[in-house]
Design a protein around this nucleic acid. Structure first.
Lengths: 359, 359
DNA sequence: CTGTTAGCGCCTTCAG
DNA sequence: CTGAAGGCGCTAACAG
């Protein structure tokens, strides 16, 4: 029924081994022979049996890219860039030695993250790229560390992209970490410099590295200016509210912040999506941006520049980072010294932030 | 080195066959035996060898989801919903019989679409879901038809989601098509009812089903109202401009439309992202939305309600469609009669459209 | 440069 | 309900 390598060999009047060699292209074969084999392949419309090949070779051409939320362009941009490096040779049409870059959506669930890694391990994946922030739960960290060690043991290359390195994990080829802390700090410094004194912060979900680092940056800036986040200062409530990375969360948290601090003049959001929700809340309260309230985001996703007013945010080079992760996963680029690289975050001051009113 | 099924069998004091049976769960095994085997699996930390298993069984647990642009939430939402149905059992932690749902980014390139299908065919994928509009080039359609037929022949279930059925392809389990034509028509009817007479249209890339159907709906509405798209009416240029599904395209096309027709009062965009670009162009021209120019999008992505003003658009039930496609791919839902279902598109009239000025 | 020879690890009849 | 045996299709040493 299905045509096998042996059929191709017979038609090309060579041995199966020779066919295998021309298909994999990593062994010298006479040009005329290769030609004959390739013709037979086309004539028979032969498609390599991946599982059989992987079994015999003990590796597969699968590369997994794990993302926390596939509907969020933050991840989509990184994953797309990585895939382009991995499977983007714009092949011959016959699908030669391409890798199969696939993205897996964990939905932010630690269990699914682990499950996907097991599935990828089961497939003997050539490489795995983990994108975005990680959960900081010690149990999960431990589970991840051992799981990644096993993957590495089995020859799978592990690359982190937009995620800090795991403690004491030599299993990892490279970790590309965003400077979330520095970015968060510069953003709040920007607001402080504009004259803001009461700044609300809509943080991401607790226990996530991204959330914590951005918040730390924010607080460091406040502290350096002799301020804190409001909690306890004069008996008032904290000006930090946690929530998921969603528009809705930004909306509700901003309403809550406005309630806690009527003298609020600025809101910093965990990311751009959250910032959009914050903007909506500010408007629904009849306040203007930035005249009454300044709003800032994080990530600089493509839509941010189109917000009205254009959103002040922190730019992360998602495309570049994803592409680099892809090349590292393919062994096409040498890892940074120590396996760790910190990727700079750049402040993008736009129209959604301005000095507070002085009345 | 690596632990195999035989190792587990030895430890559990059963035959390899029995271990295989409990792992696959599709054969009666005594409860106590199963228990013993499962314990051995955990103790040895055994992970099934996917390639070996797929080779022997002649099928794999891979399910591919092809998308045109992974950074676009339009696809991310559908893909995420599909994945949740396919791999979302929140497993036991041991990764039992889960399928591995993976998304592949074609970037809209027909070659890569074919390449990915070949790669998936090579892996003997259990199912493939194709999302979003298709290229209408006859050569590509022919290539896709034969390729999908081969996949189906090899036992791969093929499902289309947000894509019209291919002509004469019985290879497909089901096609879930959006009513892009009806949606486009209702949208333009809405503008016509508001009193608009000179309506610009920023279409998507030519030769794509989605583009064509939405445009057809637009023109049908114009025709029913005794209008056309402007071309030739009184010697003026067409009010339809084509471009990619990007913000930039919307921006530039709108500038062009404004140049072609100074009396323009409304712009309909190919999708919400394009509409955002259109809004930016309108504003940069010093015009107000909707007082001077009405703007409308398509898809109703999450950010659309947050645009300022909130974007009038056409809602597509992306999440529901993706979930249904996932279930169809898993054989968990019976296909619609004839294998084809048309999914309704709902007009969402919001603040970005209003009657034109009457001066 | 090409052919021969063994498996890779698992599933699946077939017996028991 | 469980064990034994053969083979899935390909690759990787070895020879030549």
């Amino acid at each position: 029924m299905t045509v096998t390598l042996a059929d191709v060999a017979a038609r090309a009047r060579v041995s199966p081994a020779t066919v295998s060699r021309v298909l994999n292209g990593n062994y010298p074969v006479a040009a005329t022979t290769r030609e004959r084999v390739l013709r037979a392949v086309d004539e028979l419309d032969y498609v390599l049996n991946g599982p059989a090949s992987s079994l015999a070779a003990a590796t597969s051409d699968l590369v997994g890219v794990l993302v926390n939320d596939i509907a969020d362009p933050f991840f989509g941009i990184m994953a797309g860039a990585a895939q382009a490096e991995i499977g983007g040779q714009e092949g011959t049409g016959r699908a030669g030695g391409e890798k199969l870059a696939v993205v897996c959506n964990t939905g932010g669930s630690p269990e699914r993250e682990l499950t996907y890694l097991t599935l990828l391990q089961r497939q003997r994946a050539a490489a795995v790229i983990l994108t975005g922030g990680a959960l900081e739960d010690p149990r999960h960290i431990a589970a991840m560390t051992t799981k990644l060690a096993k993957l590495a043991d089995a020859g799978t290359r592990v690359v982190l992209c937009g995620r800090p390195p795991l403690p004491g994990s030599e299993a990892i080829v490279a970790a590309l970490a965003f400077d979330n802390r520095g970015g968060g700090q510069r953003l709040t410094e920007h607001l402080l410099a504009l004259g803001h004194r009461t700044i609300g912060y809509v943080a991401g979900p607790a226990e996530r590295t991204t959330t914590r680092h951005r918040l730390e940056g924010h607080r460091a800036a406040l502290r350096a200016a002799g301020r804190d986040d409001g909690a306890g200062t004069d008996g008032r409530e904290s000006l930090t509210v946690h929530g998921p990375y969603s528009r809705r969360s930004g909306y509700e948290a901003t309403l809550e912040l406005l309630r806690r601090a009527p003298d609020l003049t600025a809101v910093v959001a965990a990311n751009d999506t959250v910032a959009l929700g914050a903007c909506a809340a500010v408007r629904d309260k009849g306040l203007r941006i930035p005249e009454d309230i300044s709003v800032a985001g994080f990530d600089d996703l493509p839509f941010s520049v189109d917000a009205t007013p254009a959103l002040t945010t922190v730019r992360l080079p998602l495309h570049e980072a994803g592409g680099r992760a892809g090349r590292l996963a393919m062994g096409m680029e040498t890892p940074p010294p120590g396996g760790i690289a910190t990727i700079a975050a750049e402040l993008m001051a736009r129209a959604s932030t301005a000095p507070p009113r002085t009345d």
